[in-house]
Design a protein around this nucleic acid. Structure first.
Length: 155
DNA sequence: GCCAACGTTGGC
DNA sequence: GCCAACGTTGGC
């Protein structure tokens, strides 16, 4: 059982969009480090924080669950699709995705600014300067601490 | 294999 | 909208 953090731009796909669906493929990841995590590490039952990026208040907005382990991302094979990659061969796929399901939406966002202030989170890639990983591992300790921040914020 | 140029991410 | 930081590409 692993923990993750997954970024999405709410303009593109928000926690509310996920809440409205049974499950959803997490497609479009085009970064090798993130790809390796999707393909090799994520397992059904794993939990992840849903992070809103590139918006007014970037931060963690809820929790999702991995419901399907990594499999080839079909959008890479669709000419004209925004995530099309001619170099991904269906016989030897370059990009992978998982399926996720909604678990919960937090009463309030845990803002990035707040996460940055927590000394115990200094190793989390998210808060490191210049980090651009859109999918990253979260340790059990970091997970528990962030949940505490959540209950503090909402009380 | 180096590295400059370029495109993208994403906070602010 | 700006721009710092980073990953990728491609010439050599």
């Amino acid at each position: 059982m692993n923990y993750w953090l997954m970024k999405s731009e709410p303009n593109e796909f928000s926690i509310d969009d996920l809440a409205a669906k049974d499950r959803e493929p997490w497609d479009g990841v085009r970064n090798y480090q993130a790809r390796n995590l999707l393909r090799d590490q994520m397992q059904p039952g794993d939990l992840g924080f849903f992070y809103h990026s590139n918006c007014a208040v970037p931060g963690i907005v809820g929790i999702l669950r991995i419901v399907q382990a990594g499999y080839p991302d079909p959008t890479a094979f669709m000419p004209g699709h925004a995530h099309y990659d001619p170099k991904s061969d269906p016989d030897k796929p370059r990009w992978f995705m998982v399926d996720v399901a909604f678990v919960e939406k937090f009463p309030q966002v845990i803002p990035l600014a707040e996460l940055k202030q927590a000394a115990a989170l200094s190793d989390l890639p998210l808060v490191k300067k210049g980090n651009r990983l859109s999918v990253m591992p979260v340790t059990a300790q970091q997970w528990a601490l962030i949940l505490q921040l959540c209950s503090k914020t909402s009380s």
